[in-house]
Amino acid sequence: MFENLLPPLNEHNLPYPDTIHPIVVHFVIAMVIFAVLCDVVGYLTRNVRLYEVSWWNMFFATISIFIAVIFGQVEAGLSEPYDAAIPVLNLHTLLGWSLAGIISALTGWRYVIRSHDPKQLPFPYLLAGLLLLGLVFFQTYLGDKLVWVYGLHTVPVVDAIREGTL
């Protein structure tokens, strides 16, 4: 019924030229890494100006991760994953939504810290940032595995799925 409303799918099994999720998510990865790095360096050197840099990176990472998750959901739904890829895709999806919540919570926490005293950063927040980095790195590993091992949205895998050989 709704198939007529959508544009035809291309050789990547997408209604647009190429995947958008990886493009947006790389901004999120970079902003989170840079925010945590600025926090750690600012904490160790007592350079409070880096806290402001970190704040804005987390703010925009919070907005960007929801865009990344939305495109990730659309592209995961269009990927037609085969049996071997499904557990990795499910974990990647679950962790993506979880990271959206975690990054939002940390940004909210950071907003409260910043509104009380922008020149202080509690050590527990730094630890939470380092744990966040670990989750981001694991999520990046899962995303890389979906593309480079399982080949989701790559032309040879899409062709094999369409031909029924995969």
Results as ranks from 00 to 15, higher is better:
residue 93 T to Q: 13
residue 42 G to L: 12
residue 125 Y to C: 05
residue 94 L to G: 14
residue 105 A to M: 12
residue 142 L to E: 15
residue 46 R to A: 10
residue 44 L to T: 12
residue 97 W to A: 15
residue 59 F to I: 12
residue 107 T to F: 14
residue 122 P to I: 04
residue 27 F to P: 01
residue 17 P to F: 08
residue 149 V to M: 10
residue 128 A to K: 10
residue 31 M to F: 15
residue 142 L to N: 08
residue 133 L to C: 05
residue 113 I to E: 14
residue 130 L to W: 11
residue 43 Y to N: 03
residue 73 Q to Y: 01
residue 124 P to Q: 00
residue 81 P to S: 07
residue 81 P to C: 06
residue 99 L to D: 10
residue 125 Y to S: 03
residue 87 P to T: 08
residue 75 E to C: 00
residue 30 A to K: 07
residue 61 A to D: 04
residue 133 L to K: 05
residue 87 P to I: 10
residue 101 G to I: 02
residue 16 Y to M: 04
residue 80 E to K: 10
residue 152 L to H: 01
residue 82 Y to L: 14
residue 126 L to N: 03
residue 92 H to V: 12
residue 60 F to S: 03
residue 51 Y to L: 07
residue 106 L to N: 08
residue 47 N to L: 06
residue 105 A to F: 13
residue 75 E to L: 00
residue 100 A to I: 13
residue 92 H to L: 09
residue 42 G to I: 04
residue 148 W to Q: 15
residue 63 I to Y: 14
residue 107 T to P: 06
residue 142 L to P: 02
residue 115 S to R: 14
residue 69 V to A: 14
residue 45 T to W: 03
residue 148 W to R: 15
residue 55 W to D: 09
residue 69 V to I: 15
residue 109 W to K: 03
residue 87 P to D: 08
residue 132 L to N: 02
residue 142 L to F: 08
residue 44 L to D: 06
residue 100 A to K: 02
residue 84 A to G: 05
